[in-house]
């Protein structure tokens, strides 16, 4: 009995460890190759590099548009999430804390956006943004991401705001606080965890998005990281050391933030799929 138990317990760990290796080894190989020369990647693919040189990284940073792509991604992602948070809070607060005719309808109207995959409307979006002069611009991308993220933000934030007791608000009102002040100084601090969930829920998909920049951005100096990577991979297609260094540079910031905030990332990204 005990022996069988021990056997099954080791089997569990063997499977889990095998999967850990399957996940981490490719990441490790990518990082390792970034320290080798292209010649060494071919001659000695699995071993440690002869000398640990940062030359490839320096080359990526100094000779390619990598820093520019990176900055663009930060800008677009930050701007989009700001739009989502501001508009999301406004809509959710109005819907969650005030009774008025059509409230329920408006809420469901926003939620209908959860069902609509915006990329299938990319043709009309293209025409529309072109007419508004917003193609090939960061603002255009931010608007698309903002619109795409709004339904989920309304859903998550309304849920949180509805759960807050009315007494807090009433007490503040009796003390003469304005409606804006109640929202800003009382409600917002209370829903901070929900704001973090909304931010992370959107952060990763927007940071990683490839489709909309591919359609909307033509200028090299406006490209975001995923789109820039395609340029970069084409330019250095034979220089594998540089390619691996570029991929590693693109992955490391995400991995670091993920490891620090893994709990919030896992909760945020599976929000909606996990009750």
């Amino acid at each position: 009995m005990n022996l069988r138990r021990l056997g099954s317990r080791s089997l569990i760990h063997i499977i889990l460890i095998v999967n850990t290796v399957l996940v981490l080894y490719p990441m490790f190989m990518m990082g390792l190759s970034a320290f080798k020369s292209t010649r060494e990647i071919f001659s000695n693919p699995f071993g440690l590099p002869n000398t640990w040189s940062l030359e490839n990284f320096a080359k990526v940073w100094a000779q390619t548009n990598f820093p520019l792509y990176f900055r663009n991604s930060v800008l677009v992602t930050g701007g989009s999430i700001s739009i989502i948070l501001v508009l999301g809070v406004m809509a959710a607060y109005g819907l969650a804390r005030y009774k008025f005719r059509g409230n329920e309808f408006l809420y469901l109207f926003f939620l209908s956006g959860l069902m609509l995959p915006l990329r299938l409307a990319v043709i009309p979006l293209f025409v529309q943004l072109r007419d508004m002069g917003l193609t090939n611009s960061h603002l255009g991308l931010m608007f698309i991401y903002g619109a795409q993220g709004l339904p989920a933000a309304v859903f998550i934030l309304t849920g949180f705001l509805k759960a807050l007791p009315a007494e807090i608000e009433d007490a503040a009102r009796i003390d003469g606080a304005s409606e804006f002040r109640i929202l800003w100084s009382i409600m917002l601090p209370l829903i901070r965890p929900a704001l973090v969930i909304v931010a992370i829920y959107n952060l990763v998909p927007i940071w990683n998005d490839f489709f909309f920049p591919l359609v909307f951005i033509q200028s090299e100096n406006l490209k975001t990281l995923p789109l820039g990577l395609t340029v970069f991979m084409g330019q250095y297609s034979t220089d594998w050391a540089v390619l691996f260094a570029g991929l590693t540079l693109a992955a490391v910031p995400v991995i670091i933030i993920y490891v620090i905030m893994s709990k919030q990332f896992i909760a945020g990204l599976t929000a909606g799929a996990v009750k």
Binding site: L87, G94, L116, L125, V127, Q128, G146, A147, L150
Partner: peptide, 25 residues
Amino acid sequence: LWLATLLVPPLLFFLTFVVYPMVTA
């Protein structure tokens, strides 16, 4: 007025960049 301030901007935004393109498609 306060409710309109809260609800109209997100609604307009949603209509312009989600509903309108979907219908136009």
